[in-house]
Nucleic acid binder design. Structure first.
Length: 483
RNA sequence: CGGGGCAUAGCGCAGUCUGGUAGCGCGUCUGGUUUGGGACCAGAAGGUCGCAGGUUCGAAUCCUGCUGCCCCGACCA
């Protein structure tokens, strides 16, 4: 548009200047011009991607998710407990965050975004500036004002709430954000599992009374069950200690993984209980209460809360003791913050009351690691389809061969055009190396395109999870993978 | 914060005890031959040995201090 402001002769120079500046994107567009615009970010040629895989795991990585994330080129450590997400890791993180977001929205929670930096004064109001201890990273700005890198956001959300909401008519309200947190752990470890900087979805509910707050709690409870199920995980809610955040109703959501950091005990029925359906009515108090009761009626506890006598009441063939990873935590804490911070609403019956609050956390960055812990084998990661960085890998087993090249291009473009996330391994590597890479980064479906199969008009589709391989025509593969 | 360990090329490691011109594998680059489970041959590039001091004719190696990272424990999304 503003090009027209150039004198005639200048337009050419301006245009070529732009071409220079945007040379890389233009080159990409040219190569991908058969794809609709929206698909360009979904489809990727490995030869042009940034995915620095490692054959050997770096020495510092001890646990499997940490090793595999480093080997798959998903992240890079920059300091103890602090990681850069590389492109492959970011794709997974974003897919997890999107699912978390969808389920929060479905439950009626509303997204906003609070800053990572917070003024200390807010925390002095709640009394937590002194109480939180050294885990809170404290900073002074240039004017010597006390600031902090937020470890959580109860104070700030309460400040926002009290600034605008005055009436019971505006309740219930649940506000959430997905933002980086910083907790200066004494001993960060296990890669993303216990980092110092981590991504957290934290939601905060506001209700006029305890009954309302319990309904809000149940909404999150159900949303969490759905979220973890969609991420391909079996989650088990376990009664939890309320810890430093305070309150009196709290559950941890634990997923089972052999390498999990805590020991858990539960009733076997948890493992095949049906996930609440997509169309569950979040406004139906009784229905949500029923789901909550069903999911909390049987024994489930981490070693901290374990009661051996109660566990012994579970029939022997139903006793499960396993290892687990905490991936979510929900709290109801009443008026712990609303009272000191004066977040009050008119009740409609004369007078104000402090609102009843709850907070609800899920760590998407920890989930990246937790999913790997729960789903991997000797060869590498086995991504659940919903969070895989790419759903399909197209492997050209004989790079430079005209026939395999053409078949791969067709599949690559065909999948991309249908909106499938596809990674096309068009590198010079040998077939074996490509198999190893595809398995390492855990692509759910891998299409092997080589001269041997192509001679009979076939490609091979491999399922990463089951290991099954099937020969079929490229058209059948396209059909299968876009279904 | 207590205890233990590590730091040498992009990654994994040897060399340190017993001081004497810094090595191996993988990866990278060039050329060629290859191509269905981490190919082969030939050649090449790449390191102030974590940092600072000290001892010595000479330090990756010995001494002192510091920093970073990992593991176990206590603590935690």
């Amino acid at each position: 548009m503003w090009l027209t402001a150039f004198p005639e002769g200048e337009q050419v120079r301006a245009a070529s200047f732009l071409a220079l500046v945007f040379w890389r994107p233009i080159r990409f567009h040219r190569a991908a011009r058969f794809l609709p615009a929206d698909s360009e970010i979904l489809a990727m040629r490995l030869s042009r991607y940034f995915m620095p895989i490692l054959k050997e795991p770096p020495r510092e990585a001890e646990i499997v998710s940490h090793r595999l994330m480093l080997r798959a080129g998903m992240m890079r450590q920059e300091a103890a407990g602090i990681y850069a997400f590389l492109p492959l890791g970011l794709r997974v993180l974003n897919k997890i965050s999107d699912i978390v977001r969808e389920e929060q929205n479905r439950s009626g929670a509303i997204e906003l975004l609070m800053p990572t930096m917070q003024p200390a004064d807010l925390w002095r109001e709640s009394g937590r500036y002194d109480a939180y201890g050294k885990e809170m990273l404290r900073i002074k700005d240039r004017h010597e004002r006390d600031m902090l890198f937020g470890p959580t956001n109860e104070e700030m959300i309460t400040e926002i709430f009290r600034a605008y909401v005055r009436s019971y008519k505006d309740l219930p309200l649940n506000l959430y954000h997905i933002q980086w947190k910083f907790r200066d752990e004494v001993r960060p470890r296990f890669g993303l599992m216990r980092g110092r900087e981590f991504l957290m979805k934290d939601a905060y509910s506001f209700d006029v009374d305890q009954a309302g707050a319990e309904h809000s709690y149940n909404k999150m409870f159900v949303a969490y069950l759905r979220t973890f199920a969609r991420l391909g995980l079996k989650s088990i809610p376990m009664r939890a200690d309320t810890g430093p955040i305070g309150g009196n109703l709290s559950h941890e959501f634990i997923i089972l993984a052999d390498t999990g950091e805590s020991e858990v005990f539960c009733h076997k029925d948890f493992l095949d209980r049906a996930t609440p359906p997509e169309d569950v009515n979040f406004d139906d108090r009784a229905a949500l209460k029923t789901i909550f009761d069903t999911w909390t009626s049987q024994y489930a506890a981490t070693s901290d809360m374990h009661d051996a006598a109660a566990f012994a009441q579970v029939p022997a063939d139903k006793q499960v003791s396993a290892r687990g990873i905490e991936v979510g935590h929900i709290f109801y804490f009443g008026t712990k913050y609303s009272e000191p911070m004066k977040a009050v609403v008119a009740t409609g019956q004369g007078g104000d009351v402090p609102v009843h609050m709850g907070s609800y956390g899920i760590g998407p960055s920890r989930l990246v690691a937790a999913i790997i812990e729960a789903s991997h084998d000797e060869a590498g990661i086995i991504w659940p389809e919903a969070v895989a960085p790419f759903k399909v890998g197209v492997l050209n087993l004989k790079q430079g061969d005209a026939a395999t090249g053409a078949a791969c291009e067709d599949l690559y473009r065909g999948l991309g055009a249908k909106g499938i996330d596809v990674l096309y391994d068009d590198t010079d590597k040998g077939a074996g190396a490509k198999f190893a890479t595809a398995d390492l980064i855990g692509l759910p479906y891998q299409v092997m395109v080589g001269p041997r199969g192509l001679a009979e008009g076939k490609v091979e589709v491999k399922n990463r999870k089951t290991g099954s391989k099937e020969l079929m025509s490229p058209a059948a593969a396209l059909d299968l993978l876009t279904r």
